[in-house]
Design a protein around this nucleic acid. Sequence first.
DNA 1: CGGCTCTTTGACTGAACTCAATAGTCGTGG
DNA 2: CCACGACTATTGAGTTCAGTCAAAGAGCCG
Lengths: 252, 252
Amino acid sequence: MSSLDIPQVAMKDSITAQKLAAHWPLGRRDRDVINGLAGRALQPLRTGTDLFTQGDRLTSIFFLLEGWAARYKMLEDGRRQIVSLLLPGDLCDPFCFLLHRADHGVTALTPVRVAEVGRSQFEEIALAHPEITKAMWINALITASIQREWCVNLGRRTALERFSHLFCELYHRLLKVGLVSGNGFHFPVTQLELADATGLTMVHTNRILQEMRRQRLIELHRRHLVVPDLAALERVCAFDPSYLHPAAQEAS
Amino acid sequence: MSSLDIPQVAMKDSITAQKLAAHWPLGRRDRDVINGLAGRALQPLRTGTDLFTQGDRLTSIFFLLEGWAARYKMLEDGRRQIVSLLLPGDLCDPFCFLLHRADHGVTALTPVRVAEVGRSQFEEIALAHPEITKAMWINALITASIQREWCVNLGRRTALERFSHLFCELYHRLLKVGLVSGNGFHFPVTQLELADATGLTMVHTNRILQEMRRQRLIELHRRHLVVPDLAALERVCAFDPSYLHPAAQEAS
DNA sequence: CGGCTCTTTGACTGAACTCAATAGTCGTGG
DNA sequence: CCACGACTATTGAGTTCAGTCAAAGAGCCG
């Protein structure tokens, strides 16, 4: 855990192992188990592919190794709400076997590389590596915390605040896995998808983004988002990163 | 699990044991452990008391034995979003110890009776009774599913649909613990609280409730809500109860 | 009966939506 | 290299759902 280790970890561990180890300290062996799973990635999936759909019986969990995905729910008349964004390294429903069926879908927003872990294999690992299981549970709790914050975003923030908050969240989450460089990051989400994530229409999304550009809160061009002044953006929405539980682990 | 058992269970088990056993079959001993915890209830807390507040370090979990509570988050300027409702029998953050601090508050909407379980005691029980732990994890996953559905409610439904959906959800959840009688249930939520749960203002809440009464979708009077035609209410919002995972347990 | 909290009402405002059309962008294949 | 189709982004005009402000009733409890 000393700072000297970090370059080595970054060289060696998969992004998923990094992320889990940030929740709960994992030893070399535990991390290597995760790296092993992450190494067996599927063929890349193309944009728009669903990892699974609402109502599916779930037979495996996914590690999102590269690319972005979205958890979403549809209404009968075609309205869609994106309920969370999955970033590189994120786990997709590690404990889904405990429920009957998927209550939502997960779709690839970009080409994605995922590793699929079947149920029996997952259960073996969970049994043999309780620390991994614990890290995954912490991960699930943080996901739930983010979900609550999204409820606040959708229920009580203005359009400008919603986008500001979302961008702040993504900035912090991507920073943690080393995907921010030069105050910016690759941002492959279309305005339609942004609208579905913030509960607004595409037209309104477009107008607010222009307003944010005008106010120099963001630069957004060709799938790249730059936040020239993070503090300013955070001020717009009174961003408090504690809901991301940046240091979840504790002496136990 | 035969239907002959049901009356006996209902007579003997605490509401929390009932609820957990509905997620995952629990034996007599496991249920009695929960009953034992539930039996040591605190003094009733009065309306408006916070079980804990955002930022608190969590030292115990709560069983809500009687009364209603709300999970909420505040914005700096006083805006509030209720992110979930806790009904009689509900658990309040059984695994909160895995995170540093509370990212939200929980407040009593009515006088409540809760049982408090300290960390060390909880961990003892979790170790000695893995089936209870499993039931609690399933409970946590269902809570997360409900949270996602609330995002849909806040992001993509009209005001009328939001209230309809919320009432349908409450109807189903209360039905499961035997708190619905004669198509109705005790409904102690004020219009201000309803507004904070649906992301609307109190004034608009009032107007929509009147509209719902006019359309004979609900009867709401003196803290009692009657749904004369559940199917009609469900039609308004295209309610699909599968997100409540009514039969979560499965052969494992 | 007084002081709460909760509910209801009216008039006005405004943030976000709808509809519809135009303009980029990107990959593909001729 | 350019033309084509399919997304994606942008713009304008008009509308509406929900918010704001302010005040008046109801219900409840000591």
